[in-house]
Each structure stands twice: as C-alpha cells, then as structure tokens.
Design a protein around this nucleic acid. Structure first.
Lengths: 251, 251
DNA sequence: GTACTATTGTGTCAAATTGACCCAATAATA
DNA sequence: TATTATTGGGTCAATTTGACACAATAGTAC
C-alpha cells in the first residue's frame, strides 16, 4: 500500500496497511498483479488500510476482491515490513509525484507506517484486474521481469517468494493457481519457478502421483506438437487433507 | 504487550506493539519467559511499543534486552496478531484489574491495537529475568504447564511453536538455546519438544553428526548413573553456513 | 502420406536415506 | 561387586532419491 491514499477519516487503523502479492500462473510463467502509478513511472502492489473493526485477513481479502473480483482464494500473511526508512520523506515525495496527488506537507502520512504482507495464489484466467483510484492500470507482470516499483515493494515480492518456497516444504501448492484441469508440466513449472531451479520430470511426476492429491482425467491435452499429455485435476478432499496434515515435499 | 502500558506521549507508533515469546531450555524442558501481573491472576508475554525511528526488529531486541539482559540472540518475527476482538473492552477491563492501573475510560488504549509476534531462543543460564513496571515477577514457565495468560497470549505462544516447528524443516536449531557444551540428548530433547514427538535416539545422532554442525569434545559429561555421554559444541562456521543455505531436517 | 521434432508416459537401477532394531560398554549406585 | 540406566556404535531391510533410458505420439514440414 502506498501511504498516500486517503484514510477516510476515522475509519481505519492509523499507520498500518496491508499489501498483497497476488500470484497467478500463465504460459508456464509465474506472474504478479501490479498497479501502475498515474504518471506511469512506477508500479506498486495492491494494498489497503484496515478498517477499525476488521481483522487483518479480512482487510487483505477485501483488497484482493477489489482488484481481482475473486473471493475464497489462498491468502497467507507472511511478513511485516516496518523499517523506518521504507516511508522516508524523500520516498514519499517521489510517490506523491508518481501518483500525482496534491497534499499538504503536514499530512499524517509523512509519518512512518508499517505494512503487513500477504501473498495470494489465484487462478489467472478468473481474474478481472481493476485499477484503484491512484493507478491507471492493473496488470500481470512476469516475476522475473518486474518493472520499477515504489518504496520497498520489490523487497516485499522477493520475500513472498522466499517464504512461499519454505511453505512448499510442508504444503501442496497449485490448487488456487491452476485451472480445474492441467498437465503435469504446468504443475512442475510452478514448483520450478517458486524453487528457482529445474526439477527432473519423471521424478516430479512420480512424487506428485504418490502424494495422492491428483486425479488423472480420461481426456488428454492436445495442441502441442508432441505426444499428448494427460490432464489432471486436484482431488480436493486429499489436497486439503495433505494441506492440513502436511507432507514431505522435498524436491 | 498489554495495551495498558503508558506510551510516553508521541515517542511510539500508535496502536502497534511487539510481543516476544522467549524460549529457554533447562532440565531437558522447553520454557517460556513470562511476566506476572500485579494482582497475580494472570501472566503475560514481555512486550513493548515501537519507537518512532526504530525498526521492528530493534524494538523486539530492546524488549528482550530489558527483560533478560541479553543481546545478539536469535530473534525471529513470526506472525502478526490483529484480530479486532483480541483487545475488546471486556478484556481490557480485566487487564486493568490485573495490572492495577487507574485509567480514564476514554483512554486511547480502549481502541484496537495489533501486535507483532517475535520468538527468541536464548541460553537459559545466561538470562537474568527482570520484571517491568506492570509486573511483580519475571519467570520461566514450562511450555506444557502454562499459567493463565492475558488476552491472546496463549495463542501467540502456540503459534510460535508451530512456526518454529516449520522453521526446523530448513534451519538448524540449538545454537542460542544450549550452553557452549552439551550432550546429544540435550539437543534431541529440544527437537522432540518443538516437534511434539519422540525421535529415535541413534537415528537422531546419525543425522546430526552427518550435518557437520557439531564438534565432538574430548571431555565426557559425568554425573548420570549410566555410561558417560560425549559432549558436543556447535561448529559456529558450519552452523551458520547451514542456517543460511538450508538443509533437509526431516525427522 | 511420410519423416521429423518435441515432449510425453513409463521403467530401470544404483546410491542414499530412513526406520527399527540390537548389543556391548560403562558411570553411578546399592 | 552386581545392578541399573543410558550410551556409542553398529546392522539391515525397506523406502526414497537421482539420473537416465526408451518407446510412443501429436503436430508440423514436406
């Protein structure tokens, strides 16, 4: 969240925001949903303030709904960013310019604020990106080709990736990231992107099938200039059982 | 942190605190450092507010130093607790009674506040517990025999344990928790306490030695009515290498 | 239709790791 | 000196991992 958005008087907690790192998956590439500042010089994470009687998770969900139209997705708090320098005056001034806001120098948001980072995993195709009032566009960006970001938003994304990588050790992933039916290669690409390294194809398949969270479909995927791969879907019951009880996911 | 402590005017961020779950190890038992409220009815986590120009980590370190006299220990942010009900009026009133504070009903801390949870691993013998101005004593409590705690402090401790358990999957542990020299049983007890289950003794030894983070000492530990076990110390260089690069710690 | 390309499903196999034991050794104690 | 509790140091089968092999096949170029 950039601190420049209006607070709406007494309705929000002062000096605290949530920022969402919303991951999607398309063309076997991990992407992040970002907002473009009004003068087009910088991008930022979708974020928002926390209402007086709202839980942190609810605030993050609300932001997610506003920017994507999605409910009930995987949303996980991962870290608080509160370095005093993250909202230094010089940075604020740059942000004011980017966002083309007119504001008095005595405004409260020249004060320090902290932000709670959440990451979300969403189904790319279902998202309808909606800019907020301080941005001109809302779009997906490749995780390895990020545009210039305001404040410490690049650091927040990096940290989301690292923490997600650790969560991968004891949680399955993909349920909220892939369409209902997908190929093994799609799933493997997600793991490879998050882990930042290549995995052996047949060993990956072996392990995923052994976990029991996948249902093999009768249908095949056709379209590629090669042997048609199977389609899979997640076995919802098994998936959430494994999600709850944990499994060894060392790749 | 209980929200009743004075803020000292404009020196702190409003509505935000840090709370430390400080773990120590003694008699092969994991313990938490707690403060006793003035009327003795409840205990609480050592916590504090964040100074205007202080990072979150620094604030947590400061609290730790104040209550234990220790610097440079392992301190890790793990979760933010911000449920609106955690600081409901009824709870606050109970806390006011416990802490024997006289305060106007319009005081700011009747408002909602959030707290950032940190956990610390410290060497039990080196700690000099110091109560703060709202507590009569500061003492170690067994993790499985916790006294009644104010607000959501019990939940915070539980969450610290769960998160620490997950960190165990890719981080070594013990460096800040054990004295310079210790037995393999000491180390195993820490793992068993955090994981909440028994481990096979010789398999545990095998794995720890293979990790390379331990140096075997010439000396033996004597005192028990049985064969004298070896003493070990951490190989600092290897320990931090593994801490940084990660290792598979599945037990 | 035919050859070619890219990628797939499946299988193999040695190496490494894990889990479940066993046993002789020994410090303190009775 | 015998007993007890716990240790260091194994063994061994079962399982998992990592690296690779190979035939099958959907599209594409011709």
């Amino acid at each position: 969240m950039n601190p420049l958005e209006e607070m709406g008087g007494e309705n929000y907690l002062p000096g605290v925001s949530v920022d969402n790192v919303i991951f999607g998956f398309h063309d076997n590439q991990l992407k992040v949903l970002l907002l473009e500042s009004k003068n087009g010089s910088h991008w930022m994470l979708p974020g928002g303030y926390i209402q007086k009687d709202e839980s942190l998770d609810t605030a993050a969900s609300r932001v997610l709904l506003d920017r994507t139209g999605l409910k009930k997705v995987f949303l996980q708090q991962f870290h608080v960013f509160g370095d005093p320098s993250r909202s230094k005056e010089s940075l604020i001034k740059g942000a004011i310019k980017s966002l083309q806001i007119d504001v008095a120098k005595t405004h409260w948001f020249f004060n320090r604020f902290i932000t709670i980072g959440y990451y979300a995993l969403v189904e790319f195709e279902k998202v309808i990106p909606v800019p907020d009032k301080h941005s001109t566009s809302c779009a997906w960006k490749d995780i390895d080709k990020l545009p210039p970001l305001i404040f410490d938003h690049h650091e927040i994304i990096d940290r989301a990736l690292v923490d997600m990588r650790h969560h991968l050790n004891y949680q399955p992933i993909g349920y909220n990231l892939l369409p209902r039916e997908f190929t093994m290669k799609n799933l493997q690409s997600i793991y490879e992107t998050i882990l930042g390294r290549k995995l052996d194809r047949s060993n990956f398949t072996r392990k995923m099938l052994a976990s029991g969270i996948l249902d093999k479909k009768e249908k095949l995927y056709t379209g590629g200039a090669h042997k048609a791969p199977f389609l899979y879907s997640f076995n919802k019951q098994e998936y959430f059982k494994v999600l709850k009880e944990g499994f060894n996911n060392e790749f």
